[in-house]
């Protein structure tokens, strides 16, 4: 999987490494900004109220 991505990145090894770092940061950003905030309320740490549900 990662080998496949690496082979399809353009440029020499340095450029590929740079693109890989940027891609990784982009994935982490999307996770922290969108995916985790969505997933987190599904976990049980969040209920601090009493309610009828």
């Amino acid at each position: 999987m990662y080998g496949w991505i690496w082979r399809h990145l353009p440029g020499n090894a340095w450029l590929r490494a740079l693109i890989s770092v940027v891609l990784t940061l982009a994935v982490v950003y999307v996770l922290f900004q969108y995916i985790f905030p969505w997933a987190e309320p599904l976990l049980p740490f969040n209920d601090s109220t009493v309610n009828d549900k």
Partner: peptide
């Protein structure tokens, strides 16, 4: 074998990141 291993490592990293998010980033 290689693909399965890579997926497992990815999943592990994802879980660590999620823990960081819940414990620290929130």
């Amino acid at each position: 074998v290689r693909t399965v291993s890579e997926l497992c490592i990815t999943l592990g990293t994802l879980l660590v990141l999620f823990v960081v998010y819940v414990l620290f980033w929130t």
